[in-house]
Nucleic acid binder design. Sequence first.
DNA 1: GTCCTTGTACAGTAAACAGGGAACACGTCT
DNA 2: AGACGTGTTCCCTGTTTACTGTACAAGGAC
Lengths: 122, 122
Amino acid sequence: MTESNPNFGSFLRERRTAKGYSLRRFAELLGLSPTYLSHVEQGKVDSPPTSDRVRRMAELLGESADELIAMAGRVPDDLPKIIQSQPEAMPALLRAAKGLTPAQMKKLLDQANKMGGKEGSQ
Amino acid sequence: MTESNPNFGSFLRERRTAKGYSLRRFAELLGLSPTYLSHVEQGKVDSPPTSDRVRRMAELLGESADELIAMAGRVPDDLPKIIQSQPEAMPALLRAAKGLTPAQMKKLLDQANKMGGKEGSQ
DNA sequence: GTCCTTGTACAGTAAACAGGGAACACGTCT
DNA sequence: AGACGTGTTCCCTGTTTACTGTACAAGGAC
């Protein structure tokens, strides 16, 4: 059922109106029907838009794509491939990072970036 | 289409026969039809089994669940929740870890485990 | 009043997902 | 020859996903 955070809809509406977009206009820019967008904003929808659509929303609204995608109950679509590229290590890393505080996460992220300094692998 | 690695099917078959399970027996233990399992093992299926089914396969075969799930082209189902718990940091971490060698990954994982030493959150 | 724009409720849907049933060919055992 | 266990093939199916079209009510502008 792809449970989407109930705040997703209201957040979306708040940001959209703040940007001065009408529902129809915003839907048009996204390539969605006003109907569906209305449903989404009311949280009356079983399945939120796909992550690439949500990414586009974020662009138009000037919000963080990853954050909005998470609110929608989705996962950024580049991540599955990354996880599968190292099927043991990546899940282990995520599980290890699960309990960490934001500050600890930042440290860990810095470590990772330091390591990958030279390798710009495709 | 949930692209599953073509090796998934043949690997599955190889391990199953090595364990002495017949297709019917194995299917029964999994709660699947022999038909579908046959399709899966031949790679003749558009959508591989769900990740919890693949996990059960791994248990029965004594294989790594994460690895088999990746072969199936799926993502372990505990990961989306973890990612969403820190929508900025987790994707960033994965992307930073993307280019790393297995050895570097191990180091990073150790760091993460050291940090989380005390916190047994949730 | 009527025109236009706003969002909304109702109903529907093509395609993908995740399989399943029945019958079949083949080898083996007795 | 019959029974049995192996995997396979053809075709079928309920459910979910990610939406859409049409029509409508409420509020302002002219």
